[in-house]
Design a protein around this nucleic acid. Structure first.
Length: 266
DNA sequence: CCTTATGCCTGAATGC
DNA sequence: TGCATTCAGGCATAAG
């Protein structure tokens, strides 16, 4: 399930590949959430690839941008020889190679919006990027005070509050910070707030370094390669604590599977 | 304002 | 073996 590190990995790879390339043809194979107008992009060139939260933004030279969200099972893969694969939903034929939008469960979407509206469509809807300078410790503390009754792990997953964290990295951050995921935001003391703030950045940076998590073998990067962070997970879908060896506890928070160590997290 | 539930989907895993 | 059931989850939306 692509979260910030996975989408960032794809973004960094595609921004080296796509700019300057021309879209020769777009084929929508089976994609209920794809804007039909993308079929008319023949002859349009790709200018830039960006990321905001978990959404990829592909700016085009016709003042429009593609907004691509992979949701749970989406893949965006660059292939030298374009061809339909098992779950290919949209196929972009490029001047060299092809860009495949694969999505087993069809939750993902591709929108086409005027580039000038990207701000409105995306940026305004989401909370701060964890690596932007506006995401300061002070801002984070204010969030925790404002949402003091929320449970901390579902809060970290709320894109309107902070963008980019999903079910994996929210609970990994809680582990690294030594905080139980079911604690309320308001119950964190100053030290815990600081630890969690650092843990968010730490886990995301590390995951980006290893090209993300391919735990479920669904996520792959823009070259079809799995990420290497899966074996470095502390708690997500793990049985025993990597630090103390104790059997992890599991529960559901916000409807999502959640794991934590009763000894290492307080 | 809040929290929790639902729908969108399909494949893998499980149960009888 | 096969068929039905359950589960996974991002996130918009509805309901409580």
């Amino acid at each position: 399930m692509p979260e910030l590190p996975e989408v960032e990995t794809i973004k960094r790879q595609l921004e080296k590949k796509l700019p300057g390339k021309e879209i020769e043809k777009v084929q929508i194979i089976d994609c209920p959430n794809a804007d039909k107008r993308i079929r008319a992009l023949s002859g349009i060139k790709i200018l830039k690839v960006r990321r905001r939260a978990k959404t990829l933004i592909v700016d085009l030279n016709n003042d429009k941008s593609l907004l691509i969200h992979l949701k749970l099972t989406g893949q965006l893969i660059f292939r030298k020889n374009a061809g339909k694969e098992r779950f290919t939903r949209v196929l972009f034929y490029l001047s060299s190679g092809g860009l495949l939008f694969n999505d087993m469960r069809k939750f993902g979407f591709i929108k086409l919006v005027p580039t000038e509206n990207v701000e409105k469509e995306i940026h305004e809807k989401y909370g701060p990027e964890p690596f932007d300078k506006d995401f300061t410790l002070k801002i984070f503390e204010e969030i925790l005070v404002r949402k003091k009754k929320s449970k901390i792990k579902p809060l970290l997953m709320d894109q309107k509050v902070i963008s980019g964290l999903g079910n994996i990295y929210a609970q990994e951050a809680c582990f690294i910070a030594g905080i139980k995921p079911g604690r309320t935001a308001g119950s964190l003391d100053k030290k815990e707030q600081t630890r969690l703030y650092s843990a968010i950045k730490k886990v995301l940076l590390s995951a980006i370094k290893f090209h993300g998590t391919s735990f479920d073998s669904i996520y792959v990067d823009a070259y079809g390669q799995p990420g290497g962070f899966g074996q470095r997970l502390y708690v997500y879908q793990q049985e025993k604590c990597k630090r103390c060896g104790q059997t992890l506890k599991s529960l559901r928070l916000g409807g999502r599977g959640t794991w934590y160590c009763g000894r290492c997290q307080n």
